[in-house]
Design a protein around this nucleic acid. Structure first.
Lengths: 213, 213
DNA sequence: AGCATTATTGATCGCATGATCAACAAGCTT
DNA sequence: AAGCTTGTTGATCATGCGATCAATAATGCT
């Protein structure tokens, strides 16, 4: 009979093997959730003994936290990177709303929501969650400040420090609406339209200016 | 030595014991999360053998789903009940925003967020989550329709069916912002102010009319 | 008082988890 | 070619889970 069963995994460099494990954990998190990241689950996906995964990671909590950061940071950097190509703050804010609400990243949204809960029992993860939330908030805050400085937005009677506050607010709204679409797909057809209108009111942008397309 | 250790739990009526179990599960969910609801955990809180809990509940998934519904439905009914005492839709909407954002129900928020994730692997729970989301949406929709009919709100060029859509939107925003405050307390001081302004813009209410105190 | 009902126990099964570690073998250095 | 370094294995431990069920004892009924 043909030896389809590989007795022992080919020996690889630590860097290469570590990358395989990281990548496997990432795939599992996106497909089955962060809580599906177990030593045995990751090991079998890589095609390796469970002990080896434990050998490369200090503990499972750290692997979960690291996987969360890898997934979420990649998204932030990707989206933030696209902002540079856009002409001004109005277009950037419109792009952020449109992109984050288009439903093409539900797997990442699920990771976010699960992390909020898991962070309760995994302090390393909780710290990563806070970091990544801050990173997103910074992206929004920069756009808002830019828009206010250039006269595209008008926050009216709000004082200066409110750009930070506004950024948190917009981010929270997006989180809630995307989480909602995770559970209730059919609810609203045009989430983007309503959100755009709401944000226009908050930052004092012209009606329709944040509407994509 | 005094017999402080009770050898056997006092025999109680099925209704009474079932209520104890339900209450224990409720307490555990609010204090440690829905995933802390286990046969042994609930049993020890009631002061009873684990087998007894299994005897009263078909399975743990059902107990989790039922506990979620009990916690969340109680909140909905409580808040919705207070609406009747208020004079009009403007006051009702302002009250809803103010009450749900005041941070006094973080434990319930945590249950919501965890349920979104757990529903992925517990179909009974997922169904309960959808039901309770619908219930909340109905509360908001009624207020919005009332306000539009009475001329307090002005949804402008939006057609009739958009009250439902608006209600989903407002609910989503609240969910996101409360979930955010679960992880990041310090972020924003005046979430309520920004949210009120955003919702005013969405429903076409007068500036400041939805601001609580 | 005797009996039938049933609330309650606690041991048990199968399964999954994270962690640990002695043994093994592949590849590099000499 | 020999030897050493280290990537890799797989068995093992302690723990926790849901579920099941025969045995036990308390209650209410006759």
């Amino acid at each position: 009979m043909s030896s389809t069963t590989q007795k022992r995994a080919t020996r690889k460099s630590p860097a290469e093997r570590a990358a395989e494990i990281t990548e496997a954990a990432r795939g599992i998190a996106l497909e089955q959730g962060l809580s599906a990241i177990t030593l045995r689950n990751v090991a079998s996906r890589v095609g390796v003994a469970s002990g080896l995964v434990a050998h490369y990671e200090p503990n499972v909590d750290a692997l979960v936290a690291g996987t969360f950061t890898a997934i979420v940071a990649a998204e932030t950097e990707e989206v933030a990177g696209m902002l540079a190509a856009l002409p001004g703050p109005v277009e950037r804010l419109a792009f952020l709303l449109g992109t984050l609400m288009d439903g093409s990243r539900l797997d990442v949204t699920a990771v976010w929501v699960e992390a909020w809960t898991l962070g309760r029992r995994n302090e390393a993860l909780a710290e990563c969650v806070r970091e990544q939330m801050d990173a997103w908030q910074a992206v929004f805050q920069a756009v808002v400040e830019d828009g206010v400085a250039g006269g595209h937005f008008n926050t009216g009677d709000l004082d200066a420090g409110d750009a930070a506050s506004l950024a948190w607010q917009i981010l929270g709204m997006i989180d809630g609406l995307t989480a909602q679409s995770l559970v209730r797909w059919g609810g609203v057809s045009d989430r983007g339209t309503h959100l755009a209108r709401a944000v226009e009111g908050m930052v004092g942008a012209a009606r329709g200016s944040l509407q994509m397309r």
